[in-house]
Design a protein around this nucleic acid. Structure first.
Lengths: 218, 218
DNA sequence: GACAAAACAGGACAACCGGTCTGTTTTACA
DNA sequence: TGTAAAACAGACCGGTTGTCCTGTTTTGTC
């Protein structure tokens, strides 16, 4: 009888963050109890407390490591890689809408979900979340500045467009989550592109309002 | 010694709803305990339970009576009374931004605040909240349909524009709440009007980024 | 291999939460 | 005025929450 236990600090920390990220999204911060998280992650109280002294510390880690990464992966990287800012925004809207329709239910935007619940609850939360929003907007605005240097989209103000794009996405996702209808994202994108200047906006296909098959009973 | 007590069912119910509405906005549903609400409203447990058997029933009443009314008063009525849909949307954005700057802090949109926390928590919550969103969009779309019948704004699709307007507002308010900066609402509005067709959009005044004086320490 | 620190186990606890229960007072109505 | 229902008071309870605390085991280092 040897080795009853194998210490794996990074792995255990990762497992806890995985479970916490998931639960905070699905149930929210206050509705997620540490007991549930411990059970779901297969972690004891001692281990959890060792890596995250308080629930707040855990949430802060989720925000700074997971939520920020999600925004990076979903939005910032695709926009940077796109041919233009507008095209990047369009592509992300459509990619997310398609993914949600495939999933069959809408869980909402990770950043906005936590932002609404925690922004007013604690200044540390608020600062961390506000920083992610700012980085998100900055990435879009920077991309648009590059476009303008190339002579494209000169009638568009970068900061304003970035704010509008982020706001439209956040709000559309909020509605889509409440209505459990990913089509609202497509409607919002269509409205966004409708007002686009100097775009050969041909017939954008009429929205197909599809009732999501799995309305997510919690 | 007569009349130790005066029964006032409506008044007591109203007081409870007042306190609950306020607390749900400021702290959220799960973070608001019935004990706090009772103390704040000066109501005993018996009275509270008599009017609202469960916490869920209380929240449902807040949503259906208070949040819906807030959307009506802030958005639907002003849009209906405006000279056009676009003008109505512009006026509401500016009115809210001005009010927030006067207040000195941003508490967020009542509907979105509760929608994020409660949409996935309970189907009854979700249905009630989704209905308010739908009514909000419908009011804007209907107004735009009237505009189009009068020959104005014929290049704009009513449903899509309504969805965009509501989403942009919701998202902008979300960011404004997180950043505690009402100016983001103005940025978003500027971006929205920038893309407006057939509008003699002259110089929209450059945004004055003002740091809000009272950052709200909770 | 000695030893200190990190990593983990698991119980204990005080505070709090939402709901229930019994009892009293007020009010509507016959 | 009698009476039943509505309105309210206030104590009570089982369950849960986040955190802390005391041990035990593993791991890195000399």
């Amino acid at each position: 009888m040897r080795q009853k236990r194998t210490n794996d600090p990074e792995g255990m920390r990762r497992r806890v963050l995985d479970v916490a990220e998931e639960s905070f999204q699905a149930r929210g911060y206050h509705a997620s109890s540490l007991g549930d998280l411990m059970a779901a992650a297969g972690v004891t109280g001692g281990a959890l407390h060792h890596h995250f002294p308080t629930k707040k510390a855990l949430a802060l880690a989720v925000i700074e490591e997971r939520v920020a990464a999600a925004v990076d992966q979903t939005w910032i990287a695709p926009v940077r890689a796109a041919s233009s800012a507008r095209e990047g925004v369009r592509a992300v809207f459509e990619a997310v809408a398609a993914e949600l329709e495939r999933q069959g239910f809408v869980r909402g935007c990770p950043l906005n979900n936590l932002a609404h619940e925690l922004s007013l609850a604690d200044p540390d939360f608020r600062i961390a979340l506000a920083g992610i929003f700012a980085g998100w907007r900055l990435a879009i605005a920077d991309k648009l500045r590059v476009d303008r240097q190339a002579g494209r989209d000169e009638g568009t103000d970068p900061e304003r467009y970035a704010t509008l794009a982020v706001a439209a996405y956040s709000g559309a996702m909020s509605m889509a989550k409440t209505a459990q209808d990913a089509g609202l994202l497509r409607d919002c994108l269509a409205g966004l592109e409708q007002g686009a200047p100097s775009s050969q906006s041909g017939l954008v296909e009429r929205r197909r309002r599809r009732v999501l098959p799995r309305p997510r009973t919690l």
